[in-house]
């Protein structure tokens, strides 16, 4: 089966700025593909090239078997898009925008439209200028999700949504994926991609630096643990699944920091028992930290310290 999206060696520059630097990306049919990267990494540029809004300098991009720059009208009938920053017409209501975008895509299912409005708790009779950022986002989401399409391109679709709506969004994406739709989900929130994606690609400085299933990328989801203890325990370095152990004096005791694979958390806690724990924080690493580590790994691998 041919991939829904196949990008090879794609390069795009804006003046002196290189937005995409030989980017490769493959999205298979029927998968939810997380497209992760910090702000300015090139996620939106990639999506805009896939939509024919921007023209690539070199490299190739294939979308649903067609050329995204040339076959705009035929390809766009089969996909829906949610931009990261939704701009609405101040004097059109949300309902009018949803209908307009739906009709442009060849019509939408009224029952599904009504159900989505209900689920996202969106008032469609408000004028565009009266919506908050989150509600503008919902208008674009309902418009995209109510159309019957093969491919969804979502650019940071949950920005501005509250946690309840985020959960609703995830549920809808899962339903669509179960129905066979392909989803490319751009995000800088690791947990969002983790919750939805079958596979993930990580982009940094216009290049995909990691791609694979979540299992394969498990090493990227270590938890950062910082503990203040009276006595630093021995043998932490030897624990499987515990990395980067750093100990430094702190007050009359010590501060201990390390990164831990989720399954190894319990053995870490066992070792810490009796060490006189005074404070403990644990946090999933931010995406930026992952990239920084990925980068330092690259440097270490190349023999540079």
């Amino acid at each position: 089966m041919t991939p829904v999206i196949e990008i090879t060696d794609l390069t795009k520059t804006f003046g002196s700025v290189t937005a995409l630097d030989h980017l490769d990306l493959t999205v298979e049919a029927g998968e939810v593909h997380g497209f992760l990267g910090p702000n300015g990494a090139g996620k939106t540029t990639t999506l805009r090239i896939l939509l024919g809004l921007l023209r690539a300098d070199s490299g190739s991009a294939t979308l649903l078997g067609g050329d995204p720059w040339r076959d705009v009208a035929t390809l766009h009938r089969r996909l829906a898009y949610v931009p990261g920053d939704v701009a609405l017409w101040p004097n059109l209501t949300g309902g009018e925008v949803i209908d307009l975008l739906g009709r442009l895509r060849g019509g939408l299912d009224p029952a599904r439209r009504a159900a989505l409005l209900e689920r996202f708790d969106l008032d469609p009779s408000k004028k565009g200028r009266a919506y908050s950022k989150g509600n503008r986002q919902k208008v674009a989401l309902v418009a995209a999700l109510a159309s019957d399409v093969e491919l969804l391109l979502l650019d940071e679709p949950t920005s501005g949504l509250d946690p309840l709506m985020e959960a609703e969004f995830r549920a809808v994406v899962r339903e669509l994926a179960a129905g066979g739709a392909t989803v490319l989900l751009s995000s800088h929130i690791l947990s969002e991609a983790e919750a939805l994606s079958d596979r993930v690609s990580i982009i940094r400085h216009g290049r995909v630096v990691e791609t694979g299933t979540l299992e394969q990328l498990r090493h990227l989801t270590r938890t950062a643990v910082t503990v203040d203890v009276l006595r630093a325990p021995d043998g932490l370095d030897a624990l499987p699944g515990v990395y980067d152990v750093r100990v430094e004096p702190h007050g009359d005791g010590a501060r201990l920091a390390c990164e831990v694979d989720a399954p190894a958390l319990e053995s870490l806690l066992t070792v810490l028992q009796g060490a006189g724990v005074r404070a403990l924080t644990s946090a999933p690493p931010t995406l930026e930290e992952l990239f920084l580590r990925h980068y330092s790994d690259d440097l270490a691998g190349a023999g540079v310290q």
Binding site: T93, E96, D99, L100, K126, K127, R129, A130
Partner: peptide, 22 residues
């Protein structure tokens, strides 16, 4: 701001319809 129509009139169904509204 008064509430508007919850769904689009038939005329608002394409580029030209939107241009007319604008």
């Amino acid at each position: 701001d008064r509430a508007g129509a919850a769904s689009a009139p038939r005329s608002l169904s394409g580029g030209l319809g939107l241009a007319w509204r604008l």
